[in-house]
Nucleic acid binder design. Structure first.
Ligand SMILES: [Mn+2]
Ligand SMILES: [Mn+2]
Ligand SMILES: [Zn+2]
Ligand SMILES: [Zn+2]
Lengths: 163, 163
DNA sequence: GGACAAGATGCTACAATGTTGCAATTCCAT
DNA sequence: ATGGAATTGCAACATTGTAGCATCTTGTCC
């Protein structure tokens, strides 16, 4: 089995290896973050998780992803990283039907509807569903965002337990 | 001004008064509840609050209403009454942008969109807005409910603090 | 490269919103 | 009026998120 070296910052490590391997080949996450502010370990790890997922993740699920990498990430720091990503418009916050926020990477500013499965609790992105929402809002309101929330059973859950 | 007698159950009260005053003129709340199950003090009080309100209320707001009547209602019992009302289809649960549920009485089974004010946190019912949601859901999903969630500033908040 | 200051992190508490278990009480069909 | 099932009240616990603050990092400027 291959042996991996955890990338380490210990003073000895770099001294004998090959010449500086050029720009560290910034990951997409790193590039995105750098464009908006400081690049930190937890921000990168969190955004990596979001980018790798095809559905919105809650804090627990993200923590699980991070734990899988072996590195430790503080709970509070993860919350703060998520807040920051949302502030920067890099991620979006989605209200779940439990009372935990879910987060997803914003892809090319593309907004879409979400389907909340009452059975498994997952939130699925419906990139294809073009809602054609024709809202005629009364005078006085300032509309910031319109979101279509669908509830029911996802294909997986609908197939098992018919009904 | 007319004088109302609080309906009392004290042993002395009924003994000398007029003959049994017929059915106690059940309030709308009492009637609704009786049609679905047991009529209890807290269920009636909670539903009264919801029926009296023109916008969805969270637990805190409901508790405040109840407190105003002078009667004490246990926190947990109120939660359970709300759960029950929702189960029975008498009330609806609405996810707020904070993480507290809001509740409203279901009127004639009428579903409508809601506007969440980011500034004052209120949720306003938009009974008039007919969303014309044309959802083309992919195969396999079982759709239970489609809800249109609007966010921004309500007329009050938009007027003050323009922008 | 090294020093510096703003910004980010890691604790430990704390807050807000519900939920669970269980003994005591209430409701309502007989 | 009675009895048994449904409901309540209370105290403890769970989940999800925030605040304060001392310490450590990051990016920048020399
Ligand atoms: Mn999505
Ligand atoms: Mn409403
Ligand atoms: Zn599902
Ligand atoms: Zn407002």
């Amino acid at each position: 089995m291959l042996q991996f070296h955890k990338q380490t910052r210990s003073p000895m490590a770099a001294s004998r290896s090959r010449p500086p391997p050029a720009p560290p080949a910034a990951s997409p996450a790193q590039a995105l973050i750098a464009a908006h502010g400081r690049v930190t370990r937890t921000r990168v790890a969190v955004l990596d998780s979001l980018l790798a997922s095809h559905q919105p993740l809650n804090h627990d699920q993200i923590a699980a992803e991070l734990a899988a990498t072996g590195e430790h990430h503080d709970r509070v720091t993860v919350y703060r990283a998520l807040d920051w990503l949302v502030e920067q418009g890099i991620a979006a916050r989605i209200a779940g039907s439990d009372r935990a926020w879910k987060f997803e990477a914003v892809r090319r500013g593309h907004r879409h509807a979400h389907f909340h499965c009452d059975t498994c609790g997952r939130v699925l992105c419906l990139e294809a569903v073009e809602p054609a929402i024709a809202v005629a809002l009364p005078e006085g309101f300032r509309l910031e965002q319109a979101e279509l929330v669908l509830r029911g059973a996802c294909p997986d859950c609908a197939r098992n337990g018919e009904r």
